[in-house]
Design a protein around this nucleic acid. Structure first.
Lengths: 236, 236
DNA sequence: CAGCCATGTTTTGTGCACAATATGAGAATT
DNA sequence: AATTCTCATATTGTGCACAAAACATGGCTG
């Protein structure tokens, strides 16, 4: 078991929000689950702490975070700032080929929505933003955008409303149209509006998904990993 | 010697660009310099690698990077994207008190420039951008902005032109005026223009500052650290 | 003489044992 | 009965020793 794999599995578990907040992740416990030495897990946990996916407390260990809606607001605000900048940049720099690629993506979203394919639509919907970051061609922007988007996915999993996730395709289309028309101001505004709307769709559902054991969740994701399933960004 | 201190000292040395690129930083060597165990240094080195301030090669060790102007372009582009988003946000959200704070900063810059106080002006000039990030009140944006700005400081140290660093105060003032007037579009444009101009001031000076030994540079910065000197952002 | 393999040396990676610190229970005291 | 102190236990942090990998040197072969 490579260190990179452990990191990937834990990252996916954490971003999926499948564990309740404030849960302690013991080094020894995880080491047993993964079947590796404690040091291996230890290093990964500290790295996840640096990436702000875990709360590391000295001499106490690693704890899952419980992002509340207030922190969620910070993430969405950061996204509005970064992605409106991205929109401004893209409006001025997109090539025709890139515009075409965007168009196809938005169409695929609409198609999935029309077919009632909720899973596909939800995936494409997230990937729209990853795609925009990719089209900037700037690795630094991509990394930052990916981090922020991942963090909102964690929030959405926790606070999504059944109704909420069933709209918003028009907003992506509006962003696309502004970008394709190279209208910078309009693109910025469309992006800002869209992200604000997405944020308002989060509902303060206080019900912590009463988590299954750490062992269950991690082993499940581990099996999925070893089966070669690669969700989200890497797939598209 | 705390792990945090070692990280701070090395970060400052690297960002100051006082070491030539591609230089190897041996674990044992650094451990001797700092007078700590190898594991301590090791951990810091890996962390710096994750922060992209060092090039970590498996089984080979840590190497200083030699950012060329092409990578510099990527950093400045990322800054244009992020900071233009910041400008758009600030134009809509600055409080009168914050505007006043910005005004004072820009005035201080002008004052330092008038007095010919090159050192102070250069410091204030960098801090202007840190200040903008701070005024967003968003910790995620702050972290990202700080990383990008630090990276450009590394570039400036390496490729600065004597003439280049002696202008640009007017550009900050233009940004301030647009923000104070809450003119979003104008603020975005002023920011983009400014960062583009700064980038063009970098000159492809091929002369690697023929570095003094790792030991000399690190021990010097270490002494400075222990004397309590805290440069740049923390000072402001 | 050039290229290549082998061996010795140096440097990094990993597991282990022990030390330091936090947690929780239980007893003693007010 | 509540609080605090102490001690037992569990968990994390750290240094050390060994393993593994890369590098350098020198000799061998074509």
């Amino acid at each position: 078991m490579q260190e990179e794999e452990i990191h990937a599995v834990l990252t996916r578990v954490l971003l999926a929000g499948r564990l309740p907040g404030g849960l302690k992740l013991g080094e020894h416990h995880l080491a047993e689950i993964f079947g590796v030495s404690r040091e291996r897990v230890r290093k990964v946990l500290h790295r996840l702490g640096a990436e702000r996916l875990l709360d590391m407390v000295r001499n106490r260990g690693a704890f899952t975070l419980a992002p509340d809606l207030r922190e969620g607001h910070v993430v969405y605000e950061a996204r509005r700032i970064l992605e409106s900048g991205m929109a401004a940049h893209l409006a001025a720099n997109l090539t025709p080929a890139q515009i075409e690629r965007l168009r196809r993506h938005v169409e695929a979203e609409a198609e999935a929505l029309r077919c009632g394919d909720q899973a596909t639509w939800q995936r494409l919907s997230a990937e729209f933003h990853y795609l925009l970051a990719e089209l900037t061609g700037n690795p630094l922007v991509q990394r930052h955008a990916q981090e922020l988007i991942s963090r909102t996915l964690m929030l959405v999993k926790r606070y999504e409303t059944s109704a909420g996730s069933a709209c918003g395709c028009d907003e992506h289309r509006a962003i696309f149209r502004a970008l394709a028309a190279r209208e910078r101001g309009k693109a910025v505004k469309a992006m800002t509006t869209h992200l604000s709307l997405v944020e308002t769709r989060l509902r303060p559902t206080l019900c912590e998904p009463v988590g299954p054991s750490v062992e269950d969740v991690v082993t499940e994701e581990l099996a999925r990993h070893q089966a070669g399933v690669v969700p989200l960004a890497e797939a598209g």
